[in-house]
Structures are given as C-alpha cells and as structure tokens.
C-alpha cells in the first residue's frame, strides 16, 4: 500500500475563538462536565467552557499547518460554519470570511475554503456567499442545519443555485453536535430533496461515515450526487474502535463516495493528527484490503474532483 500522491483533509476548521461563538463551546462543556463529575472530578460548565475557549487561539492557522506537515497532509478544506444567526453573536460572518482569506494568503496552496451562510440571513447572506466565491475565490458552501433549518428547505435553494452556477460542492453537517443546537435537522435523509432538485450540485454529508451511518450510506448509494466524509473517525461509537469501524465502512462498495477528514481541531487537538495517520496507513490498519485507486480517491482525488481542481503533488 502506498500513501496517495497528496493527502487532502476534506473536513477541518480553524481553531480560532474568533470564528466560533462562546455558546457553542458552552454546549460541548456541558457534556464534558457530566462526564468529569461521573468520574469523581466535578468541574463547572463555565470553567470547562473557558478552558475550551482558551485552547482555540490558532487564529492564523500556524498550528494547523504544523500539524498537517507533521502528518503528511498536503492540503485541507477549511469549513466556516455560520453560527452567527442562531447565537446572535457579536462575531459577523464577513469578518470570519476575511480572516480565512488572510489565513490562505499566509499559507499559500494549503487550504480550500467552504464558506458557511445561514440561509435565514436572506439576500444579504446570499450576496455575501457569492462574493466569497467571486472575490475571495472560496471553493464551496458549508451548511450547518442544526442551527435550525432543513438542508432541503426552499430557503436554502438560492445558495444551491449559486453553487450550481459556479460548480461548487456543498458540505452539510450531519449528526449530533453541541447541545445548544437542534439535532432534529441533522439527519442525512434531510438532504434528499435538495439532492434531487439540484442534481448538478454535489453534496458531502459531513461526518456521514461516523454519525447516523446507515442513513448516510444509503443516501450515497442511491443519490449519485451525495458523498460522505469520515470525520471525526477517532470518536466513533463502535465496540471495536475506529479501525474496525472504518474497515467495515471501506468494505461496502462505496469508496468512490467517501472522502477523508479529521474535523481538526475537534477531538484531535490533544492527540495531534500524525498518530491517526500512522495508524490509518499501518500494515494492519483499515486500508489494508483496499486497492490503490480507492485509497487515492478517499484521501485526495475525490475531494479535488469535487472542487474542480487538479489532483497531484
């Protein structure tokens, strides 16, 4: 087995608390507080929220690029979810977009960016997204339905129309997330109407290889324009752990629809990415039975094709 010519992480984020409202961290902290209390060490939600907040100060992506270099990852897709509508945050989405422009300028050829826009911003948001494509050169759309909308609601269709016109992919979050958000809109099946109405637009089910996997797999099998990513595979709920889960996922004839992603910095801030890559590509790892074409597709070629870019070194 050879590592692909260029590994591309199709799902990661800037670890910057200038991009994510504090309420998002507070939700994550609430679950961690329950767990730590059960283990005999009560820590308040506020304290954990502050700890998480202070861990996210990689505003220019330097730490992320160092991680990528160490792990042998050539390029990554930076996803920019728009939480600003639901949390009424002081952070505005245009500032966040411009921060990602700066990061790209600082690290040339390392990042593609999928801009998020909550469709309830209406025309203002649609115009911002189109500017992000035409002026900033961003490569895709990121949607976060748990903010409170279905990805097949017609309020989202103007964004898909922009994607159709510019031949851009859409990455849609699926599965549970911060408990401060609404999980009912996180079902992979909710992409069905949009995928049917916009057959020229390709949709990637973010976390589809980890959350609600049966639904995600069926969508990928039966909708030609639906894909899934495997982020954040290290935390999948599976008896045999993530290697066994991925071995099974990769054995189901869907590898042409699967793209690799880490979800950095979520879940891997402490471990780093390199140990995960080493285990993935180990001789007894979950790729051991795959032909080289599938490995190349999952770890780079497919996402490059989805964003319409050449693939290689």
């Amino acid at each position: 087995m050879q590592r692909p010519p260029a590994i591309i992480d199709a799902h990661c984020h800037l670890a910057s608390n200038r991009c994510v409202p504090r309420e998002f961290f507070a939700g994550v902290a609430a679950n961690m507080a329950r767990s730590s209390a059960f283990q005999g060490v009560p820590v308040s939600v506020d304290k954990i929220t502050q700890m998480l907040w202070l861990q996210h100060e990689d505003h220019m992506g330097d730490k992320l690029v160092a991680q990528m270099d160490e792990a042998g990852i050539a390029r990554a897709v930076l996803l920019v979810p728009d939480f600003t509508y639901v949390f009424k945050s002081p952070i505005d989405i245009e500032s966040i977009a411009r921060q990602h422009v700066t990061v790209r300028e600082r690290h040339p050829d390392r990042f593609w960016v999928f801009q998020g826009v909550d469709p309830r911003w209406g025309k203002e948001g649609f115009d911002l997204f189109e500017r992000a494509v035409t002026e900033f050169g961003f490569e895709g759309l990121k949607l976060y339905p748990p903010c409170g909308f279905s990805p097949s609601s017609e309020i989202v269709f103007p964004l898909y129309e922009i994607c159709r016109r510019h031949r851009l992919p859409v990455l849609v979050h699926t599965g549970p997330t911060s408990p401060t958000l609404d999980f009912t809109f996180a079902d992979p099946y909710l992409i069905d109407k949009a995928a049917r109405e916009f057959p020229e637009v390709n949709f990637i089910l973010g976390h589809g290889g980890v959350n609600l996997v049966e639904q995600a797999k069926l969508m990928c099998k039966y909708r030609p324009n639906v894909y899934l990513d495997i982020s954040p595979f290290p935390v999948v709920l599976c008896d045999g752990g993530w290697p066994q889960h991925l071995t099974s996922l990769f054995a189901q004839g869907l590898n042409h629809k699967i793209v690799f992603g880490t979800d950095w910095p979520v879940h891997s801030l402490q471990t780093g990415v390199r140990p995960l890559m080493d285990e993935l590509f180990s001789e007894r790892g979950p790729l051991r039975a795959l032909e080289q074409r599938s490995i190349d597709g999952i770890f780079g070629r497919s996402i490059a094709e989805l964003v319409g870019k050449p693939y290689g070194n």
Binding site: S36, V41, V43, I48, Q270, P275
Partner: peptide
C-alpha cells in the same frame, strides 16, 4: 498513547 487520555481526562487533570 500510554495512559489513554481523552479530552475530558485532560480537563479533569488541569482542574
């Protein structure tokens, strides 16, 4: 790698 720490363990340790 050796102690199997999770993100929750790290929070507990710091506290």
């Amino acid at each position: 790698e050796d102690l199997g720490f999770s993100s929750v363990n790290a929070i507990m340790l710091i506290a």
